[in-house]
Design a protein around this nucleic acid. Structure first.
Lengths: 258, 258
DNA sequence: CGGGCGTTTGAGGAGACTCAAACGTCGTGG
DNA sequence: CCACGACGTTTGAGTCTCCTCAAACGCCCG
């Protein structure tokens, strides 16, 4: 709320005349994520058209579920603020976290194939999402090629992201997995203009372990080891990467932490 | 060649007049995969339009590379015949197979995000692909909503598929992983009209192991164990699933193979 | 201050890996 | 047609990584 996000553009365009302050603040053009999120690269006019189909901006309180496996698919969700986890449940009941998502990322793309959600999405902290009715989005595609193209890029990016997790789970040792996880967070925060070396972990040790195919104890031991080697400073969920190059080398597998 | 695929439709449509027999045989409408592949659900007219942009049908001999990491992205490839593997190479040199693809599946979707391929694709046997120039495909999207929708479904399906591999790699034991792998192959062959219980493994033990995050020795031992338990009959790459329900139960984790 | 919960640390064990050797299959060439 | 070699696979023995189980710690909140 106290952030210095410009609420109205200096240009008093007539298109804005009938909008309330609330509505203006919610617009894509006013959102700090619009260069990462779905409207990336759109001109003013196109961004307005996208704005008009977006259902509502919705708060999602911590630990609450945005959607569940089996829910009918009607909306994609763009994260405006906050963090989420998505996870699958396998037949014998336990969960596998398939991703941690942050502002500017899109949730729900896996549901397009069957019109039902394939995973659960839960807020890791109090968050806000933009509801994007997929049917209306599809209507825009036919005459907004830039939007369509960027949408394809985002889906493709999700495929790529999952492939690197497969690489991680398939042939990295615990130490390397954890380092890769840290480097990944680091670069995503950097892309959002935050510090690449100092941030808060939004997820518990247990969730990290689950995501990386390791136990909570292993994560804890890895944190201690990295801390002892002077690579990290950790206090609860507050994390500082002291030696990012080494952590990157660990992630790349060109270095081992004895 | 000796298969009884109808080369011309009984209706002598004039649209076909100028096409050679070769060209006719190559058309989507003549392809046995058209109900699984990109043209799924298209009417005759739309399928023709799609046909017209498809570059060429191309043979890919066993062990040869369709594309490599870093190659500029210009085409998607629909597999017309045969099998492929896609794999990533990590910084320290070893590979992680991210998928095995068969006829009717689409290769290259991970390249859309950056206009460069993110993985290598290699034919597991002599194969044939349809080259789909992506730029031309994009041109079709604006007035072929059915095509666009199915394309989105295929991308989404790929996301879903990878999520289940993450589940597999992240929290299944070796036995369960291998059972899940077999069940997956089984159902994909079934969808193509082949036997769900008797097929040939197109990939080596080593490749299976790599894909499942296990060693070749582990795969070999699992095969022996399943064989001894009477679940499978195996002879080299020829495989028969004798007790599919149990294998499914193993994959689901509701059963253990002692 | 006390309870609860998430985390840390330790000890022991199991599953999968590594290393090594034997085996079988297939293709080649004599 | 058979012998040979190469390569992929199987099987065994020993090891290591990470898991399991257990207990203590410490932070947060009432």
């Amino acid at each position: 709320m106290s952030n210095s996000i410009p609420i109205v553009s200096p240009d008093p365009s007539s298109a804005y005349a009938s909008l309330s302050v609330e509505e203006l603040r919610n617009r894509c053009s006013a959102c700090s994520m619009h260069e990462l999120c779905l409207p990336m690269g759109l001109d003013e006019a196109d961004m307005n058209r996208l704005d008009q189909i977006i259902g509502r901006r919705r708060k999602v309180v911590r630990d609450s579920t945005l959607y569940r496996v089996g829910d009918p698919f009607t909306n994609l969700y763009a994260i405006r603020l906050g963090h989420f986890k998505t996870y699958q449940i396998n037949p014998d009941g336990d969960q596998q976290i398939t991703g941690f998502q942050m502002a500017g990322e899109l949730l729900g793309m896996d549901a397009i194939s069957t019109d039902r959600h394939h995973c659960n999405a839960v807020a890791l902290e109090d968050s806000e999402v933009c509801e994007i009715p997929f049917a209306r989005l599809e209507n825009l595609f036919s005459d907004m090629p830039t939007l369509l193209r960027h949408f394809h890029r985002m889906m493709s990016q999700e495929i790529t992201r999952e492939q690197s997790v497969m690489l991680l789970l398939g042939n990295m040792r615990a130490e390397q997995r954890f380092a890769a996880f840290l480097v990944n967070l680091s670069s995503r925060y950097a892309a959002r203009g935050y510090s690449s070396t100092s941030f808060q972990l939004r997820m518990s040790r247990e969730e990290i372990g689950n995501y990386l195919g390791l136990t909570i104890e292993s994560i804890s031991r890895l944190l201690s080891k990295f801390k002892k080697r002077g690579l990290l400073k950790v206090s609860n969920r507050e994390l500082e990467i002291v030696d990012l190059p080494i952590v990157k080398a660990l992630a790349a597998g060109t270095e081992t932490c004895s």
